[in-house]
Computed example of a mutant assay.
Amino acid sequence: MGNHFHLLVTMRPEDEVSDKEVQTSFQRRYGDEYTLMPGQIPFYRQKWTSLSEYVKEIKQGFTRVYNKKRGRKGTFWAERFKSVIVEKGETLINCLAYIDLNPIRAGLVDRPEEYHWSSLGYRFRSSRKDGFLSWNLGLKEYNVKSPKERLRLYREFVYARGGVDLGKGRILDAIALPENVERFIQRTRFFTDAGIIGSREFVRQGFELFRDIIRPKRERKPHRIQGLDQVYSLKRLT
């Protein structure tokens, strides 16, 4: 976007990453010029399974390149990133659709795949060239088809959610809950500020798991998001 970006990523816990995977990642990143010592493995395992470190490297790397290109100095990003824990399945694919529809809401393009810096646009141009983006789109029916078919199904889902015109007056709002299109657009803040978003049980369990990090002043209960069926938020947003 003009002054920020959105990422939907799967972070793996440290205990699910083997020593061999850390060594392989190290060699891919630094080549044969450097050798990873056994005592360094825990450090890199922690570093490469940390969301904060992941975002930090992206932002710092971009800033270095941008500053060099523009002949400027100093920081580029004004604030710390915000993060939301998203449940797999229906909530996840709605979150991905929210991200891909951002350029439409901002008036940058007429169709989401026309925006070069989005996952939908990238998949349209490079869907069969590499494995840069995951094809796990959150729903079982999107995982059993060919990449081309998954792309078609997901595109229809995004168009329906955003009420996007296909051309010649045709709108794919009959494919995925057309009565919720406007409500979906009005509830988009939940995908950036909810804290935890998903089913009631997912939000409840997430709160208990991260209670020591959240440190709430009072007990938090899942709040239902009106207009999004069976989706709850950790925070009550207006």
Results as ranks from 00 to 15, higher is better:
Ile185Asn: 02
Arg45Val: 12
Pro103Asp: 06
Arg64Thr: 13
Ala97Gln: 07
Asp165Val: 00
Asp15Gln: 03
Leu151Cys: 01
Thr75Met: 09
Arg187Lys: 07
Phe157Pro: 02
Leu177Glu: 10
Asn3Gly: 01
Ile196Tyr: 00
Glu149Ile: 00
Thr35Tyr: 06
Arg215Asp: 13
Arg125Trp: 10
Arg111His: 14
Lys140Phe: 09
Glu114Ser: 05
Tyr232Leu: 03
Ala194Ser: 10
Leu133Val: 07
Arg155Val: 05
Glu21Trp: 14
Arg224Phe: 06
Tyr34Ala: 14
Ala174Arg: 09
Ile171Cys: 15
Lys82Cys: 04
Val84Asn: 08
Ile196Phe: 07
Gly227Ile: 11
Ala78Leu: 13
Glu208Cys: 15
Lys221Asp: 01
Leu133Trp: 08
Leu96Ser: 01
Tyr54Val: 08
Phe202Trp: 03
Phe132Val: 00
Ile58Lys: 07
Gly74Cys: 10
Gly163Phe: 09
Gly74Arg: 06
Gln46Thr: 13
Asn180Trp: 09
Val9Arg: 08
Arg12Tyr: 13
Tyr232Cys: 04
Ser126Trp: 14
Phe190Ala: 14
Ile104Ala: 09
Arg72Asp: 07
Ile185Lys: 03
Leu151Glu: 10
Met1Gln: 00
Val231His: 00
Gln186Tyr: 10
Gly206Pro: 00
Gly2Phe: 11
Leu237Gly: 04
Leu166Gly: 14
Arg187Asn: 11
Arg187Ala: 12
Met37Glu: 04
Phe184Leu: 05
Met1Ala: 03
Leu120Ile: 15
Met11Cys: 05
Thr49Ser: 06
Glu219Ile: 13
Leu153Met: 04
Pro178Ile: 08
Leu166Cys: 04
Pro42Val: 09
Val203Ala: 03
Lys56Phe: 13
Phe157His: 06
His223Cys: 13
Tyr115Lys: 01
Ser52Ile: 11
Asp165Asn: 15
Phe81Leu: 08
Lys235Ile: 05
Ile104Asn: 05
Val164Gly: 04
His6Trp: 08
Ile104Met: 08
Asn94Ser: 09
Thr192Val: 12
Ile175Leu: 02
Ser126Gln: 15
Gly74Leu: 12
Lys20Pro: 00
Gly39Tyr: 15
Gly167Ile: 02
Arg218Gly: 02
Val84Pro: 01
Ser126Asn: 12
Ala194Gln: 00
Arg224Leu: 10
Lys82Pro: 01
Ala97Asn: 05
Tyr44Thr: 11
Ile41Pro: 01
Gly107Phe: 13
Arg204Cys: 02
Gly167Pro: 07
Lys73Glu: 08
Gly206Phe: 06
Val17Tyr: 07
Ser18Tyr: 15
Asn143Val: 03
Phe26Thr: 03
Trp135Lys: 15
His4Asp: 00
Gly227Glu: 10
Glu87Ala: 08
Tyr98Lys: 12
Leu151Thr: 02
Ser83Thr: 11
Gly31Ala: 07
Ser25Leu: 11
Val109Ile: 12
Arg45His: 03
Leu151His: 02
Ile196Arg: 00
Ile196Met: 04
Arg125Gln: 15
Gln46Asn: 13
